[in-house]
Structure formats: C-alpha cells, structure tokens
C-alpha cells in the first residue's frame, strides 16, 4: 500500500506514553504479520539506549551497525538492516545500546524514512515510552500512528495524553491497539472493556489483543507470537496487520476460557458482553 505522499512505503509509528504496555511486542508482531502478507517491511527500534526490538525479534546476535551509525554516517543504510531468519522481506534496524536519545534527531528519522520509502511497503517505528525527545523523533516521519494501551487507568490516561500531543503535532488522532484484555474479567465487571476504552479515548480501534499464555514463551524464544498459529494474541496481531493494509477485517467475538461462564453471561446480558476481538 502506498504512503500518504503516494511515493512508496508507509511510515507507521507505534507508541504508548506509558512503558510496559506492549509497544515492542506489537511492533514485532505487526511487522512479522505484514511480511507474512507478502509486504516488504523494515522495523526501526527508536528506543536509543534501551534497545529491545532485536531480542523480541530473535536477531540480537546479528547486530553489527545500528540506527546511530546510520545517522552519523558510519555505515550505509543497507549495512544496518538485519534480515529476518524466516522472512527475507523483513528487516530490522536496531537502536544503539550505548548512546542516548540525543544521538538521533527528528531530521535523522525523516531522512532514514525517506531513504526507505521507495524500497519498502511499510516502515514500523518502535517509539520509546514517554513524551520527550525520543517520542518526538519517532513520530516525526510518521504517516500513521498506532497507540498501544492496556485496559488500566494509568495506561489509558497516558494514551489520552499521547493522543493530545499527536493532534498538536499534526499526526493525530492515531489508531488504538488495546493489549492484554481478559474477557473473563471484563464479563465480571473487573476490567475496562474495549467499548469503555473507545468511549473514553474517542479514537478508532485497530485491534484488540487478548491476554495470551503464548506471548511470554514467544518473547523468551525470540519468535514473535504471530508465528504461533494456536495463539489468539497472534491472530489479533495478524488482523491488525490486515486492517493496517486496508482490509476490512471484522472484530470477532472474544472467546472466554470458561465456556459455561460465557454462556451464562450471554444469557444475562443478551449477548452484548461478548466483545470484539481483533
């Protein structure tokens, strides 16, 4: 799919405000899913000094050059692009682990993105947490922004702040990825539902990722969970990739762990407790 300027790839930044909500996991999985759809994808880890996307992707032992080396002209862009083991059209540009956020500027990010645009279909930029320089760098080249949040008060509050900053920067409103939702808890009224979060933040949802037992083992092994066909979180990321790619993928009913409880809930709620999944 063409970028907004009609010249090649689309630059998508994944951000959140709050740390630990699953930004890097989302970036890795959406990237792998897009590559599985036959797209040429480059992932950029913009979290300078705290790189993680390399380990989530299982590519940590192949790093020679990084984003700062590109920005400072020590290597060619190609040399910093690490090819994925299974998907030859998926590459990672890792962050530097030894430098800090001041090593890269907004114009560096725009320059690197402009170099990549004619070569690829998607550039996914993994933003650092926070609202400071690293975040500003990560959104500078973005055609589209995905905001990852969890169904928790602190994460939703930070997502709202990010949405406000994106709008002020002319990058808004962005689309929401709601991560780590547990339908059993939503049904008991002990967790915010996708509808609650959409209502509060008033932006479009691009995916709802259920809490899933396969996510942690996947990150342990460095094999993104979207490659595990048993994983419901993996299916959700796959659907996000398809939606990002312009497909109209319906949100599916979220299955609960406990079938009996689910049926009971449906009985008492007329089915509207049955949430969407994506």
């Amino acid at each position: 799919m063409a970028g907004e300027n009609g010249m090649g790839g689309k630059i998508v930044t994944i951000t959140s405000g709050k740390g630990g909500v699953g930004k890097t996991t989302a970036t890795a999985n959406i990237g792998v899913a897009l590559a599985q759809l036959g797209k040429r994808v480059v992932l950029i880890d913009a979290d300078i000094g705290l790189r993680n996307l390399d380990v989530v992707m299982g590519l940590e032992n192949r790093i020679v050059y990084n984003l700062v080396d590109v920005a400072e002209g020590r290597c060619k862009l190609r040399q910093a692009m690490i090819k994925h083991k299974l998907l030859p059209d998926l590459h990672l540009i890792p962050a530097s682990q030894t430098r800090d956020k001041s090593a890269v500027s907004q114009s560096d990010m725009i320059q690197v993105s402009d170099w990549l645009r004619p070569e690829v279909d998607y550039v996914l930029i993994d933003s650092p947490a926070g609202i400071e320089r690293g975040f500003r760098n990560a959104i500078a080249p973005a055609d589209e922004v995905l905001i990852v949040t969890n169904p928790e008060v602190s994460a939703v509050r930070d997502a709202d702040r990010i949405i406000g900053l994106l709008e002020a920067a002319g990058k808004g409103p962005g689309k929401l990825v709601l991560n780590r939702i547990r339908q059993d808890m939503v049904s008991k009224g002990e967790m915010l539902s996708a509808d609650d979060v959409t209502d509060i933040l008033a932006i479009k949802m691009i995916g709802i990722v259920p809490e899933d037992q396969f996510v942690v083992p996947a990150s342990n092994k460095g094999v993104p969970v979207v490659l595990n066909e048993e994983s419901r979180a993996g299916l959700a990321y796959h659907n996000i990739a398809r939606r990002l790619n312009g497909e109209n993928v319906p949100f599916l009913p979220l299955e609960e762990e406990d079938g009996f409880l689910r049926r009971l809930t449906r009985l008492f709620s007329g089915g509207n407790q049955l949430l969407k999944q994506g």
Partner: peptide, 12 residues
C-alpha cells in the same frame, strides 16, 4: 459499580 465501573469513572 464493580472495579471496572470505578476505573471508568475515575478516568473520566
């Protein structure tokens, strides 16, 4: 209401 209702109210 439940804790989710409380979360929603506090967020608002």
């Amino acid at each position: 209401g439940g804790s989710a209702a409380s979360a929603k109210e506090r967020l608002h």
